[in-house]
Design a protein around this nucleic acid. Sequence first.
DNA 1: ATCTGTGGCTGTCTGA
DNA 2: TCAGACAGCCAC
Length: 809
Amino acid sequence: MSAIVNAYIDGDDEHIVLVQRDEAGARITHRVLADYAIYFRNGEVPGDWLRKWRRDPSCRGYRAEGEWLRTRWRGWNARRFILSIAHEEGIETFEGDCNPVKRWMADHPDVTIQAPRRAYVDIETDSRVGPKQAREEGARILTWCVMGEDGSYEVGVLEEDTDAAERVLLRAFYQAMMPYDQMVAWNGDEFDFPIIGKRTKERRLGGGIPRLWLKMDHMVLYERMNLQVAESGDEKQSYALNAVGHAQLGIGKQDFDARKTFQAWDAGGDSLDALVDYMVMDTNLMRGIEAKTGYLKLHQTVAEICGLFPDSWALLPTAQMDAFLLRLGRRRGVHFPTTTRAEKTYDENKYRGSYNKDPPERAGILRNVHVVDFSSMYPSIMVSWNMSYETKVPGPVNGPVPAGMCRTPKTGVCFTTSHTGIIPEALEFFLAKRKEMSARRANCAPGTPEAHDAERWTNGYKVVPNSFYGAQGNAGCRFHRREVAESVSQTGAWLAEKTEWALRERYPGCSVIYVDTDGLWMVGITRDDIEEAVRWLNESFYPKLLADCGCKKNIVKLAYEKEFELLVFIKAKNYVGKFRHYKGKAAVAGSKPEIKGIAYKRGDHTQLTRDFQAEIIDLLMGGMGASKTPGPTEDLALYEEAVGRWRTRILEEPLSIEQIQTVKGLSKCVCFDEKCRAGEHYSTRKSTKGKTVESPPHVRIGRVLKARGEDIGPGSRIAYYVSDGARKPQGVEPACDYTGKCDRNHLWGEVVWPPTQRLLESAFPQHDWRPFNAPKREKVAVDRTEPLPTLPKKPPRRMPESPSGTLFH
DNA sequence: ATCTGTGGCTGTCTGA
DNA sequence: TCAGACAGCCAC
């Protein structure tokens, strides 16, 4: 057995099924005994327990494996009982939580994961059943589509509205799925998979969707992957398939009304054809999105690296880390603690994190700003300080670092240097593999299959280690140690501070104006000096710094990343900049500016806010394609014209709902039912006067929609608009109720203008932008004696003088 | 099969 | 007018 495509626990819980594709593509399955194992340290189990286990029918046996004792149990319950008595006696157990599939994969670390034959799947269900009911109780499946990666597809249509016909339909569906191993569906985890599963059970075709197929939610994958690369907030407003199809492929909305699926099916003929066409188009959209993004391919690579099967579960960082390290541990002959339920909530467990230095306030347009950053900061720290849950050793917090250990400066936590920890070892493995694959790619002719393959592995080996720090900071992770996680982030903060001071000392004119975690932003220094500084830091400064901590290794590395020709800071994590060069490549005329944090990037602002801000950014930096007179320009008349035009537009001209709606996600259940088991609910706290505090607007609207029978719950996105901003609480309405009237005064004065006002006040602090504020509500803009609003009390921080004199314009 | 982290900004709602 | 609780989203 060298490669498998899937494995699952068989119905009897006593076996697991290994699924394989042979060279001809035929599916082969093997049944092997399911192993419910617990490891102990040899010698830690009392002799009378071992004698008892020999006669215990729930014990399948035990054997010594080096310094470990491996015990095997007859099923979940038998194992759970042994874990609990061991826990009571204070005897450490290892890997006692692993299900038999995870156990088998860990026991066979050389078995690789085959690429599954992928089918994109979509179903249409009876629209007379509301979406909520459909998800919870099921709804009649009317049609299905199964599409292969080559675009060939099969379609099934319900013959008549009876259970017997649905049974036939489902049988045909599974028949169509037989050539495939993986079922990919958009929002499948919440819709298609549970519904297909329920109907399968009700029609007595099985207990649910057979485990033979890997279930993969394409939408969840897309959301995770696209979060970091989305250019503007437009892409984040909706993850509905047609919205993503539009964003990625420019495909327009289809004219089929998805709320009328039953009528279309019932009418038959052309109506039914339209329904089927619509479904096939949707299925094909997923194929198009994958062709454009390659996210499924990357996920497949990550799964292969970790030893996981590519389903929705394999997206979780803890699952990836756990699977990879269990296999690495098996190769090294080590085993890891049994994972138990985390007891405390996350908030109670928060530890100190990254370092942020505030940027200068209202400093105008900055010029020639250079940025250096640490390459893979947290992984490099974990390797250099040998940080792992099991390498932590007792040692002095202050004073000289004893031999055989290294110490983190801010937390005083010591780690042994006598042997490499399992996490640093894994990280070094990824680094080496990435380097190897990157070199292979460079040696392949571009565009060849070999080059693409090397590219795929390069990306996979880059992605996997990135989540290790976060995963081990999670209380539910097998490798979690709070002090270790904090030591990683605090050592990062320390390195950034040390770098800041070193630069200041070595280059008196240089000023570090902003720091966020692993990036340092500076002015008053030339490109040549920075490159020299980076060399000096890497070759001399960090080696000494780390040696003083007792580190035996040092892979901490700073890199010169980019220079901004122009830069405007609004606040920490909020800025707009025009590149001069980025990673060695010079910017060209019309290069897109870098935009971070501000309204333009956010999915929870109105489209008007984003479009307006895009036009102003185009004046400031160019490259947005949003203004007739793209900048960079400092001609204030151009800005005033644009602001005035937008102000008039919003106060007076017709506005569509798409332009004015705010979209926010719900993170909790909106109901008031105390018996509801849906997890967390929104707080119903009382004010100090004993009055019930109103919920936020999107929660109130969520309740309205739920009362109308819509499927509203955690994860739902709520679109609403403000109809009366003066009322308390605000008058808000569901976006679907819009009839063309909204509170324009509020829209301009509270929603659209402020984010861009802050941008303009940051770029042109001397200019007074208040005349563009919304008209006063009571008396409209005639009362000249009205006192002007007071300016912020805090004096703006002064920018340090730059020797070149290019800092201020 | 509960399960990446912390830091930071902006908005609403409330009462002082 | 402002601070503090709560909430969502974004930068690392």
